[in-house]
Amino acid sequence: QVASGNGDRDPLPPGWEIKIDPQTGWPFFVDHNSRTTTWNDPRVPSEGP
């Protein structure tokens, strides 16, 4: 069983990049398509309500 969020081996969607926040050391994700950033890994399906 693979733990949720453990998709580091999967490629990011086109136009996405991983960067590290220098203050926290946490990775965040840059979507160059929409010029936005998020803490949520785009490779992990979001949980519904």
Results as ranks from 00 to 15, higher is better:
1 Q>K: 15
19 K>C: 07
14 P>E: 04
18 I>P: 02
15 G>Y: 10
32 H>I: 03
28 F>H: 11
27 P>D: 14
8 D>K: 13
31 D>W: 00
37 T>R: 02
9 R>M: 07
15 G>N: 12
43 R>A: 06
24 T>A: 12
43 R>D: 01
11 P>W: 04
33 N>L: 03
48 G>F: 07
42 P>C: 10
21 D>E: 12
15 G>D: 04
42 P>F: 02
5 G>S: 15
19 K>P: 03
35 R>Q: 14
48 G>C: 09
24 T>P: 02
15 G>S: 02
16 W>M: 02
35 R>S: 07
42 P>H: 04
9 R>V: 09
40 N>I: 15
8 D>N: 12
20 I>V: 13
20 I>G: 06
44 V>E: 04
43 R>L: 02
48 G>D: 13
39 W>R: 08
8 D>H: 06
25 G>K: 15
47 E>I: 04
30 V>F: 05
10 D>F: 10
48 G>I: 12
15 G>T: 02
43 R>Y: 01
47 E>V: 02
43 R>I: 04
25 G>W: 02
3 A>R: 07
41 D>Q: 03
1 Q>T: 13
49 P>A: 09
5 G>N: 15
18 I>Q: 08
4 S>Y: 10
1 Q>E: 14
14 P>I: 02
18 I>E: 13
44 V>Q: 10
33 N>F: 01
45 P>W: 05
43 R>V: 02
37 T>N: 05
5 G>W: 05
27 P>Q: 13
31 D>C: 03
17 E>T: 04
37 T>G: 01
13 P>S: 00
36 T>W: 00
47 E>K: 10
6 N>L: 13
39 W>Q: 01
37 T>Y: 10
2 V>W: 04
9 R>L: 06
13 P>K: 03
41 D>W: 00
19 K>W: 01
20 I>H: 10
32 H>V: 02
43 R>E: 03
10 D>A: 04
8 D>Q: 11
16 W>L: 04
46 S>F: 09
25 G>Q: 14
41 D>I: 08
26 W>L: 07
48 G>K: 06
36 T>F: 05
41 D>S: 07
13 P>A: 07
25 G>M: 09
26 W>R: 14
4 S>D: 12
48 G>T: 00
36 T>D: 00
17 E>L: 00
34 S>G: 05
44 V>N: 03
4 S>A: 08
47 E>M: 09
28 F>C: 11
15 G>K: 05
28 F>Y: 14
18 I>S: 13
47 E>R: 10
28 F>N: 02
22 P>L: 06
10 D>Y: 05
45 P>V: 10
7 G>M: 13
25 G>C: 12
29 F>H: 03
45 P>Q: 12
32 H>R: 06
1 Q>F: 03
16 W>P: 00
31 D>M: 00
17 E>Q: 09
30 V>A: 04
7 G>R: 15
47 E>A: 07
34 S>R: 07
42 P>Q: 00
1 Q>A: 14
17 E>D: 05
31 D>I: 03
15 G>E: 06
24 T>W: 09
9 R>F: 01
31 D>Y: 05
34 S>C: 02
27 P>S: 15
39 W>A: 07
24 T>K: 13
33 N>S: 11
36 T>G: 03
17 E>F: 01
9 R>I: 14
47 E>W: 06
9 R>Q: 07
4 S>K: 11
2 V>S: 10
2 V>M: 06
33 N>W: 06
36 T>V: 05
23 Q>C: 07
18 I>C: 07
15 G>Q: 00
16 W>T: 07
15 G>F: 00
32 H>L: 03
12 L>A: 07
27 P>E: 15
22 P>G: 13
47 E>Q: 05
33 N>H: 06
17 E>P: 01
10 D>V: 08
13 P>G: 03
48 G>N: 14
44 V>K: 11
12 L>K: 13
36 T>R: 09
22 P>R: 12
4 S>Q: 15
39 W>D: 04
21 D>G: 05
42 P>I: 00
12 L>G: 10
31 D>A: 01
24 T>V: 11
43 R>S: 05
36 T>S: 09
15 G>V: 00
36 T>Y: 07
36 T>Q: 06
36 T>E: 05
5 G>I: 15
18 I>L: 06
48 G>P: 11
33 N>A: 07
31 D>R: 04
24 T>N: 13
31 D>K: 00
40 N>F: 13
12 L>F: 10
13 P>L: 01
35 R>I: 00
31 D>V: 01
44 V>R: 10
39 W>K: 02
18 I>K: 13
2 V>R: 04
8 D>L: 08
25 G>R: 14
45 P>M: 07
40 N>H: 09
1 Q>R: 14
6 N>V: 14
22 P>E: 08
47 E>Y: 06
40 N>K: 09
41 D>H: 08
48 G>Y: 09
15 G>W: 00
17 E>G: 04
41 D>V: 02
39 W>M: 09
42 P>G: 06
27 P>H: 14
13 P>I: 03
21 D>C: 07
26 W>K: 15
19 K>F: 02
45 P>F: 11
36 T>A: 02
35 R>P: 07
37 T>S: 11
42 P>D: 04
33 N>Y: 07
21 D>S: 02
43 R>G: 08
42 P>L: 01
27 P>Y: 14
1 Q>L: 08
33 N>R: 04
32 H>F: 00
19 K>R: 09
28 F>A: 09
34 S>K: 02
49 P>Q: 15
27 P>R: 15
19 K>N: 01
23 Q>R: 12
1 Q>P: 10
31 D>H: 04
7 G>Q: 15
43 R>W: 00
29 F>E: 09
15 G>M: 03
37 T>W: 05
6 N>A: 14
14 P>R: 11
34 S>A: 12
28 F>Q: 14
21 D>Y: 00
32 H>W: 00
42 P>V: 09
3 A>F: 11
43 R>N: 08
18 I>Y: 09
19 K>H: 02
7 G>L: 13
2 V>D: 12
27 P>G: 11
41 D>A: 02
14 P>D: 03
35 R>V: 02
31 D>E: 00
1 Q>V: 14
19 K>V: 08
13 P>C: 00
3 A>H: 10
22 P>Y: 08
2 V>F: 12
4 S>N: 09
15 G>L: 01
37 T>A: 03
47 E>G: 08
14 P>T: 11
45 P>C: 12
29 F>W: 06
23 Q>D: 13
16 W>S: 07
46 S>K: 10
20 I>L: 13
41 D>M: 03
9 R>K: 12
21 D>L: 02
46 S>R: 11
7 G>P: 15
30 V>S: 01
7 G>W: 13
9 R>A: 10
44 V>A: 02
41 D>N: 05
27 P>M: 14
41 D>T: 13
